[in-house]
Simulated assay, not measured.
Amino acid sequence: MISRIKQGLLFLFGRYKEEWNREVEKLLSKEEYKIFNEMSEYDRIHSYKLYKLVCADKLLGSKEIYKKLALLHDCGKYHASLYRRVKKVLIGEKSLENHSELSYEKLKNIDFELAKLAKVHHSSVDDIYIKKFQELDDK
């Protein structure tokens, strides 16, 4: 519950810092960076914070693909309002439930391996890397 309150406050008051782009640009290709910049401000903040958690993680920190996944896993979300995001958590929101599939579609012709990971980033899978990624994403 506390993490959901923090997410709401971040949505309302969070600001993406332009200096973060220097780090993001070094990791992502030009095509990937374009997709990242098309994401909503909240999703870019969330993704950058997740990227920092992945970098610091012992299991995922040495894997470039999981760093990229952190930045692009939610690229299939549109600029959803706080209302839609709260609705998704409380009762479900069809327009946000397929964001993993939409992320896959955006990424599949750029980096197929990254696209496959984006597609399953909320799925139940027996993969220790994805499970760890999900744990960090839920923080």
Results as ranks from 00 to 15, higher is better:
Lys52Trp: 07
Ile110Gly: 02
Ala70Ile: 07
Phe13His: 01
Phe112Ile: 12
Ser29Glu: 08
Leu50Cys: 07
His79Thr: 06
Lys88Leu: 09
Asp74Leu: 03
Gly8Glu: 11
Ala115Gly: 06
Glu93Asp: 15
Glu97Arg: 10
Lys87Ala: 14
Tyr48Ser: 00
Glu135Lys: 14
Trp20Gln: 02
Arg4Gln: 13
Lys68Ser: 07
Phe36Thr: 00
Arg84Asn: 13
Leu107Gln: 05
His79Gly: 10
Glu19Cys: 03
Tyr33Val: 00
Lys63His: 09
Glu113Ser: 11
Glu31Lys: 10
Lys52His: 08
Gln7Ala: 14
Arg44Val: 08
Lys132Ser: 05
Glu18Gly: 04
Val54Asn: 06
Asp126Val: 02
Met1Leu: 11
Lys106Asp: 00
His73Val: 04
His73Ile: 05
Lys116Ala: 11
Lys6Thr: 11
Tyr104Pro: 06
Leu82Asn: 05
Leu69Lys: 01
Ile91Gln: 09
Phe11Glu: 03
Ala56Arg: 15
Glu38Gln: 15
Lys77Ser: 10
Glu38Ser: 13
Phe133Cys: 00
Tyr42Asp: 04
Lys26Val: 06
Val54Glu: 05
Leu60Phe: 09
Val120His: 05
Lys26Leu: 13
Ser100Lys: 10
Asp137Asn: 14
Gly92Ala: 12
Glu93His: 13
Asp43Thr: 08
Lys88Ser: 14
Tyr129Glu: 14
Phe112Asn: 07
